[in-house]
Design a protein around this nucleic acid. Structure first.
Lengths: 112, 112
DNA sequence: TGGTTATATGAGTATATGGCAATATAATCA
DNA sequence: TGATTATATTGCCATATACTCATATAACCA
């Protein structure tokens, strides 16, 4: 009983970690950039206006957690989404969020 | 140009906040409990073995961000999912995550 | 080999987050 | 009204996170 509960918590911690990986605006921006194809660290740093070390750290985290793959070409390292459904999943979340915002807006109008 | 970029960042911060709301094991557990119908704070605290104040805080956060609705009945307050697709979205994320883990496992086997 | 470019990593700092304990607010009931 | 139950809120602490700067590692080229 307790054993089963612990397992369930562990499982949910695992899923929560995945959500945490998506729970950063810069990482979402990076993922969005990668939808159109692989990009190097400096590509991303330039297009997003972020520090190279910052981007590198975000990519390292996403790599650790299996969201992106890497390919070295000379001195550059190219990052790509390991699964295009990552972006689909994010889009669905965004859709739900947008609908909620719309619903709350309507509700606020009714009250007013 | 800069204006547009700022807007994009702001938008992604908004989406990141939504992901953050899901990025906690106990909140995911609460959401999973609510799939089967509305529950009071103490219901949730008991079934998950969490402190009442802890559950209350998590629910307040989820309510602020529109994930749950509330209904008062006497002294109790019942929480419910504001949109069942929240759980669907989480399930999709979990699916992607599971596939990634499976793929990495296969890869590890090949290397070994 | 030395210089340059690309990426990764470590140190330090500021902020955010989750948890617990204690207290406050609110509703019920005797 | 006073006691009880249910929920919310506040203060505090420990930990985690993101960021910047500086430095290390790695590949390339003259």
């Amino acid at each position: 009983m307790t054993e089963l509960k612990l397992d369930r918590v562990t499982l949910y911690e695992f899923h929560a970690q995945f959500c945490k990986t998506l729970a950063d605006a810069n990482r979402l921006l990076i993922i969005a950039e990668l939808v159109s194809g692989e990009k190097s660290v400096s590509d991303l740093a330039n297009s997003l206006g972020l520090h190279q070390s910052n981007v590198s750290k975000h990519l390292a985290l996403m790599r650790e957690r299996g969201l992106v793959d890497t390919r070295r070409d000379g001195a550059s390292i190219y990052y790509s989404l390991s699964d295009p459904r990552i972006f689909k999943a994010i889009e669905l979340l965004i859709q739900v969020q947008s609908d909620q915002v719309a619903r709350r807006h309507k509700l606020a109008q009714k009250i007013r």
